[in-house]
Amino acid sequence: MAPAPGDDGVTADVTGGTVPTDEIIRGTDVVKEYETGGQTVRALKGVDFGIAPADFVAVVGPSGSGKSTLLNLLGLLDVATSGDVRLRGEDVSTFTDREQTRKRKETIGFVFQSFYLIPTLTALENVEMPRMLDRTPTQTRERATQLLERVGLGDRLDHYPDELSGGQKQRVAIARSLINDPDILLADEPTGNLDRDTGDRILELFDELRTDENVAVVTVTHDDYVAEAADRVVTLIDGRVRETEDRRANFEEGPDT
């Protein structure tokens, strides 16, 4: 496995009170509640987290334990009900929708479980999509081509999603998530539905990204194989962090729980 360059920089824990300057996003005592059918569901019940450059964190846990909620908060798709979430020191709850959208574009790359490729666009155009409105078509095209070559799809640029296999779609989705040069890659079940060989290639790609571009990878997974490859494993059960594996835990239970 590739070295985890983030390890040395990320030594903070909340109880210690030190917030390392290079941390990308940090949450303290984060609670998230949903209203469903008149009932309030507490999806996260006071969780601390911190992601530093080049981290590789696997979030595991049974369904309904709050994994997706956590990923949404990290991805700035949602805001916490209470607690403090800071993106490079800025309180995300103060962001307007527009700021939130912009920060998302600058910081986060998403790889969705069901890829969500746009069927009318070719592989190359799908990768370009997040930057299509930037009016820099030449640079975007170059970058998108590089990324697809990098994920081994240099010969599939003009294929439409329905002409690609599951693994190829997954790799297009990863290439797309990287087009904006994100700091954090959020991957939901990145190896789900993939055979072991393809899964291996995707994990290798994650390692490369971390080493070469300092991208932090946070993945929600059911796959032990992926969890083993991560520097840190965070187990969420019923909205709380239950255990952290071997390495320094930046995910902990909040002080009030």
Binding site: R98, T101, R102, F110, I118, L133
Partner: peptide
């Protein structure tokens, strides 16, 4: 969901 993806990838409203 596709529009959700656009928004997630930073397309403003």
């Amino acid at each position: 969901s596709e529009i959700g993806v656009l928004r997630a990838y930073g397309y403003p409203k």
